[in-house]
Design a protein around this nucleic acid. Sequence first.
DNA 1: CTGTTAGCGCATTCAA
DNA 2: TTGAATGCGCTAACAG
Lengths: 342, 342
Amino acid sequence: MAATIKDIKDLTGLSLATISKYLNGGNLLPENKEKIEQAIAELHYEVNEMARGLVTSKSKVIGVVVFDIANVFTCTLLKYLGERFREAGYAAMICDSQNDAQLEAENVRFLVSKKVDGMIIIPVEQTAGFLEPALRADIPIVLMDRSLEGSGIPCVKVNNRMASYQAMEMLYNYGHRRIAVIGSDRELTGRERLNGCLQLLKDKKTDIPASYLKIGRHSIEHGYNSMQELLELKELPTAVFLGNFEIILGAVMALNESPLQCPSDISLIGFDDLIISNLSNPRLTLVVQPLRDLADNAAGLLLERLQNNKNTSVEIDPDNQKQGDLILPALIVEGSSIARRV
Amino acid sequence: MAATIKDIKDLTGLSLATISKYLNGGNLLPENKEKIEQAIAELHYEVNEMARGLVTSKSKVIGVVVFDIANVFTCTLLKYLGERFREAGYAAMICDSQNDAQLEAENVRFLVSKKVDGMIIIPVEQTAGFLEPALRADIPIVLMDRSLEGSGIPCVKVNNRMASYQAMEMLYNYGHRRIAVIGSDRELTGRERLNGCLQLLKDKKTDIPASYLKIGRHSIEHGYNSMQELLELKELPTAVFLGNFEIILGAVMALNESPLQCPSDISLIGFDDLIISNLSNPRLTLVVQPLRDLADNAAGLLLERLQNNKNTSVEIDPDNQKQGDLILPALIVEGSSIARRV
DNA sequence: CTGTTAGCGCATTCAA
DNA sequence: TTGAATGCGCTAACAG
């Protein structure tokens, strides 16, 4: 059986309150302090966080719900989030929704049961209904990457639309006019990116044939099939925009299997960086999301709210009803996958 | 404030004990059952797991400590582990050690405080000292990937030595004699793999110059630098064994930057699969770890022990003192990165 | 600065 | 089958 403060009491003769105070950083006589420390060492005492949590109704745990944990984007974010939370004295309880909205709802409910102090969520679902149990329990939530439209819950993300626009603009400025787009309208991020792409084409009054527009899902398969289809067209595009990491993966696979070369035959620009892109030859030009910043901001936002809840006496910032999203700029990192066209 | 069973009591007129029994699947009159269910729905009641845990001294949480969470190997494992645990009614609390032994020790202590029911650990540290708090608290542990020698704690892993041996054998059978090895002696897995490589060379009485043996860490940098150095040698190796994923990444980068081609100029075989390898052209021949099996076995082993602890009355299997490691075979998946030499 | 007391929300005796 | 009482380990008043 693990030692409790009662054991410390028996060993030191001090009262439970004194020991508790020690554990929570209160002031006591040096000699008592030493006694307790000795007892703790001797008994190998470790605080029972369940008991502590029961009385404080704080768990010092932040629940993190991600749409898919086996995903480089996700786990890089998890890493950075974890660092921030740890610094602030919180641990992360990570739940994988496996791209399943039902699991996601269960995860939220589970974390509510666990009395987490706050939640970070990268959602599968597109509406906020599944968050109800958390909201009712008054648990602060910060979303990442994918907003929940009209929910009023803040989301930290990049400006997908603008970044895509700029990526397309880069292709355009390199002289490309026959530009294909492989993207997704299944995820919000995908739609935002598509919008950016189409906007650029519109602004530049550049028409592309319908066969250049490959809209499906953010999946390897979609990237692979789409690129294969593009390569079979009579009039090839000279450049292709790849809407996310999985699409890049699939598209590059398809291209690698063909006799065509990048960038001499076909130029590429992709959305989503990952160290992994180091493997591709030539190195891809990419729209890079500032993962560190995204995580820092999301963690910061949540921690701030946790702090404020503490001195809940003061009710400030009445204008803050409309918690807007926090939108960070993405960066284009140049590789050598875009050829100049005259 | 969140609803408690007391609120249900007030609403239904039943006693706390009856409600508790309902929550734990006991038998009660259908009418009472219905009453409670109605109250739960009305109050949006959710069990307070902290309170429950305090009295049962079970958290239904399994702690998972990984050496680095931003790692495809790790998070794929996490995904599979998570699925198994969820099925069994457990949640995972994931802690990232960030390749830091001190953090790792803290993580273990933290999870002990959280009263997790069991732990899965992919260790940074090479000795078992840091596990003491968990062992003392009698928390079942299963290691993955990296054994802790002499600790008696079971580890689920692949046969690194044999797999490396077979990988080298494949190069040999393709006719290669000038084989270089980029590996690590800093991690146990690295040493095991190196041993396998050297054993094959020994068995085949194949001597290689010292300059072909690049021993450092499992890092991109080591892979990159080593490959660069190899490519500068007067007598190039005809094939290179790459000891893990990061090394592959670095080595392929270096090769991509050189005029030499794989496999016509130099053949490659790598340890560690990842979808990512789809990006490389040509597709790499790889030693693939059966991640799903590894996770299933580790989760199974742990869950089994958790079950057995329940009926702790029965003390079976007295021969089980020496809990050997569970060693799974790795698979070689052929790409086209190895050329035939005559 | 220290000790006494009460109670967090729930499961679990034991009676009824 | 149900209910009343007890305690899990700890913190938070309050009093000394």
